[in-house]
C-alpha cells in the first residue's frame, strides 16, 4: 500500500472519514505519521475553540476580580481558585461523571458526555480561569497615567475601557497569555485519557500515538512523531501570537516594545 493511499485512507480518520478499521499489524512509518497527524485535528479543535471562547470569559472574570463590589469580585475569585487550584485531570473526570449522571435524568445532556462538547466545556472554563488571572495581573499593572489621561479626555465607562484599559491590559498580558495558549494546546492531550470515550476510535494525536506504542511496544517511533507535531504547533502559535503582539505594541518605539519571551509551560 503506497503512502498516498494511506494518507487518503487515514488522513481524516480522527473525524471519521476514510477507512473504518485502524491498522492492526505491519505498521509503517507512513501510517504512524498520518494517523497521529490526523489526531492533531482534535487537539487544534479543542485548543482553538477553548482559547477563543475562553478569551472573552477571561476578560469578564478579570474585570470581575478587579471590581470593588464583592458581588462581582467574590464569584470571580472563587471561580478562578476552583479551576486553578485543582488538577485539570480530575476536572475532566468529575465533569464527565456529572454529565453522565445528568444524562440519566435529562436526555438533553447526552451530547455533553461526548468529548467534542463535554471536554471542550471543561477546557474552556479552565483556560478562562488561568487567563483571567493573567489579565487580572495586567489590569493591576496598567500605568496610572494612562487612566488619568483617559479621564482628562473625558472618557468614562465603556469607551474608557474599550479605548484605553482593554488595549493596555492585552499589551501587558500578551507574553504570559502566549504561554497560556501553548500550555492549553498541550493540555488538550489529556482529553481522551480522562473518562471521555473516544467514540469509534476517533481520538486525538496522543490517543493514536499511545495506540501505536501499545501495539508495537516500541515507544521510540510514535512519541517522537507526536513531539514533532507539537513542536511545529507550538512554533505556529508563537508566530501567530507574535504578530498580534507586534500589532498591540505598534504605537511604541521599536526598542521598548516587549519581546515575546518563552517561559515555562507546565502541567496544570
Amino acid at each position: 500500500m503506497s503512502c498516498v493511499q494511506t494518507i487518503a485512507d487515514y488522513g481524516l480518520r480522527a473525524i471519521g472519514i476514510g477507512e473504518r478499521l485502524l491498522p492492526r499489524e505491519d505498521f509503517t512509518l507512513c501510517q504512524q505519521f498520518t494517523l497521529i497527524g490526523s489526531g492533531m485535528i482534535w487537539n487544534v479543535y479543542f485548543g482553538l475553540l477553548a482559547l477563543i471562547f475562553g478569551f472573552f470569559f477571561a476578560t469578564a472574570l478579570a474585570i470581575g476580580k478587579a471590581s470593588a463590589k464583592p458581588l462581582f469580585r467574590k464569584p470571580a475569585e472563587w471561580f478562578i481558585f476552583l479551576f486553578r487550584g485543582s488538577p485539570l485531570f480530575i476536572q475532566f473526570f468529575f465533569a464527565y461523571f456529572v454529565f453522565l449522571s445528568l444524562k440519566g435524568v435529562y436526555p438533553f445532556f447526552s451530547p455533553f458526555t461526548a468529548a467534542w462538547l463535554g471536554a471542550l466545556i471543561v477546557l474552556f472554563l479552565n483556560t478562562a480561569a488561568y487567563s483571567a488571572e493573567i489579565f487580572y495581573g495586567a489590569l493591576q499593572s496598567i500605568p496610572k497615567g494612562e487612566i488619568e489621561a483617559a479621564d482628562a479626555y473625558g472618557l468614562s465607562g465603556w469607551s474608557r475601557f474599550r479605548r484605553v484599559v482593554w488595549p493596555t491590559m492585552l499589551r501587558l498580558a500578551w507574553p504570559a497569555y502566549t504561554n497560556e495558549a501553548i500550555f492549553l494546546f498541550h493540555a488538550t492531550t489529556l482529553v481522551y485519557f480522562s473518562g471521555f470515550p473516544a467514540w469509534q476510535q476517533r481520538g486525538d494525536a496522543l490517543y493514536y500515538a499511545s495506540y501505536f506504542a501499545d501495539k508495537t511496544f516500541n515507544p521510540f517511533i510514535p512519541y517522537p512523531i507526536l513531539a514533532m507535531y507539537f513542536i511545529l504547533l507550538t512554533l505556529l502559535i508563537i508566530s501567530c501570537f507574535g504578530l498580534v503582539n507586534t500589532r498591540l505594541n505598534r504605537h511604541l518605539p521599536a526598542n521598548t516594545g516587549q519581546k515575546l519571551k518563552l517561559r515555562p509551560n507546565l502541567i496544570r
Binding site: 489529556l190 496522543l206 506504542a213 515507544p219 512519541y223 513542536i231
Partner: peptide, 21 residues
C-alpha cells in the same frame, strides 16, 4: 528545551516504557 516543548503527559507515557526497555 525538549522536556518543556512536548506535552508532559506524552513524556509520562513515553518514559515509563522507554525506561523499562
Amino acid at each position: 528545551a525538549i522536556v518543556r516543548g512536548v506535552p508532559d503527559i506524552a513524556f509520562f507515557l513515553f518514559f515509563v516504557i522507554a525506561l523499562d526497555q
